[in-house]
Design a protein around this nucleic acid. Structure first.
Lengths: 209, 209, 209, 209
DNA sequence: TATGAATGAGAGTTCATTCAT
DNA sequence: AATGAATGAACTCTCATTCAT
């Protein structure tokens, strides 16, 4: 991650003194996220990103290795957030079916709260370089496996029906979640929580014993 | 559709006589489908398409207005196929829950049979020009509405549970279906029919009264 | 001239029978003239010409050797017309200053009557191939020399002032004439005859002894 | 004007130190002027321009928005020069007929001194984009109006004959001037000043009261 | 820490022309 | 007399990235 190497240097003094130029990497990531979501990764010239962020190309290449690297940072941020949430929820001592329902609802709310990230995620993965793509997939798989473990725990405990493949259920459910970006409108009639409840309800109902 | 204007003319004789050069537009579409699915629309140069199809750029632009047009044709083909299938299934006189289950399973089988189309569909829509994007969305919406009508018919008839928004169910289910392209492997352990049964089962179970 | 070789063949019968397809070369020339004047030679694709003429590319290349040839025909037509007019006027037995004035006025009226030709003439000459360009220039020079001869005749006869180079006068006057295309508007307030009188008047006045 | 944004920055040091790479935009404009005059705008590939200027395409597009922009800059330069000259001459306190004669002669000398610009001007105007064409025409019109004002001043003062439309005279005269590029040869027998005197003489004579 | 001029490869598209039919 | 599929070369322009400063 080029970010870590560079972003943590910098003169704190100057940042405090001149908030205009402060947080350059953060502003670049924000601009990139917005643009990648709106236009797609390949349709977004580096020029546009730096314009939106109000910096120059030189600055971008100072903080990030490449355009790819920028995308990679975005993925890393999303994955970190979702993993943290899942871990937190899974670690509570509520009954498994409650933890599963909470996790299912949370991933919907989180995805809607970061809809740009969601759009990028499912559209632009294959535009990452081979190696970084592997990293992201691996992290993603770990996330899915953690989710699947919850289902299997419920199946073993008899609170969720057997006879349905947990791995398929995970792919089934996250397909729905990833597609939120294609149809959900922030200015539409549905609150994020409403969608979350419905989605979680559909999942749990389909798993009733 | 540029294709229709040109591809249907031409001398059948010659095509029969020299299958090597025959079906130029079809070969272009096939090559484009494969490449768009593998590499993505923006990552696929026109040069590669014509190389794979064994023709020249001039030939491509003789049959298609633009690279965009090629993508549009692919969409049109998928939509036509899925719409036909849905209409056929919906029109039978089986009980509504059987028709819904059949439709749900069919769209999975069809998507897997045309996995390249599926991958392109959900990844590259936003790379179509504004106008064509509208066309495709409209056609897609009609398809979804037809599907939703089946659910609502079941709800009204009391064979599917009330209290769940049919439109959300449609988005939920087709999210799962569209994402098949990201995880399904043709050389994997799961037959298309197995996935189809599971998916249809999850849908129907979640709608049990 | 490719035209002569081909256009004079053809079945008179068919032309009489089907005026729709008759006069194909003429319609091509008309379309080309209009388009070359509006858009410029290089900006006018052959495709547009044949569309406007309602024929196919094959037909065009049947009658004309090339796009260049089409332009050449247009030049030939203009030159022929103007030369004929000049010869006719110069050959009358009116006093030389009357003949000069008449010729000067006529070339304005003719240029305005064929404004498209005029526009093409002064804009697109250099887009002709080397050889054809020479031909046109030679013909043009002959025309200018005939005009100059009138001036010199007047100077020798004492009805036009000496001490002004006749060749420069010719270039001076035809500069003005060729530029009609850039400012004259057919729907403007000035009748062609008005302009012609003014132009001829300016010329004759500047040559008063 | 894209030029202004970029060309004035840059390190003067470096330019002084390495004149080989200095003045890239100027060298591009020079090459473009020469080529547009010789071959015409549409016949001149960008490739040729950058070859002649000894830079890469990227450099061209760094300084200019488009090939059109390059042409526009050339126009702007010509117009600026001619307008300045006219203003200077018109502002002297010589009698109006002297000022008019001087202006008429000057525009000939200037046109011949910048014959390439002249050729481009009257041939390629219509190859500019709609909007820029309007700009140039407006500027041109202002120039013509300034010139016309001189004539009208002379007419009102009684030193030039009435009964001839000043606007037509302007179009008449500038037609001649613009056409210098089609026949004047720098290696020919006529000095620029000779032509200028003749042209001015023809104009003034045609306006004698 | 940051600049922005410059690169060089490649993008999508257009075009006049040919030729088998 | 006429078709229109196909060519192949050339076109304008864009882009991520580098590097001297």
């Amino acid at each position: 991650m080029a970010l870590e190497n560079a972003a943590d240097r910098g003169t704190a003094d100057r940042r405090a003194a001149d908030p205009e130029v402060a947080q350059v990497p953060r502003r670049l990531l924000e601009a990139a996220t917005r643009l990648f979501a709106q236009e797609g990764f390949d349709r977004t010239p580096v020029r546009r990103i730096v314009e939106e962020a109000g910096v120059t190309k030189g600055a971008l290449y100072h903080y990030f290795d490449s355009k790819d690297d920028l995308l990679h940072e975005i993925y890393a941020r999303v994955l970190r957030l979702q993993t943290e949430n899942l871990e937190r929820i899974a670690a509570t001592d509520a009954p498994v079916e409650q933890r599963l329902r909470a996790a299912a609802a949370d991933v919907v709310v989180t995805s809607i709260a970061n809809l740009d990230d969601s759009k990028i995620f499912f559209r632009s993965m294959h535009q990452l370089g081979e190696e970084k793509q592997k990293e992201v997939r691996a992290e993603r798989r770990r996330y899915h496996e953690r989710f699947r473990a919850l289902i299997e725990e419920g199946q073993r405990g008899g609170v969720l029906r057997d006879g349905v493949r947990a791995d398929l259920v995970v792919d089934f459910y996250f397909g729905s979640v990833h597609h939120l970006g294609t149809w959900y409108r922030e200015d539409g009639p549905l609150a994020a929580e409403t969608v979350a409840e419905h989605f979680a309800d559909l999942l749990m109902t389909s798993l009733r014993p």
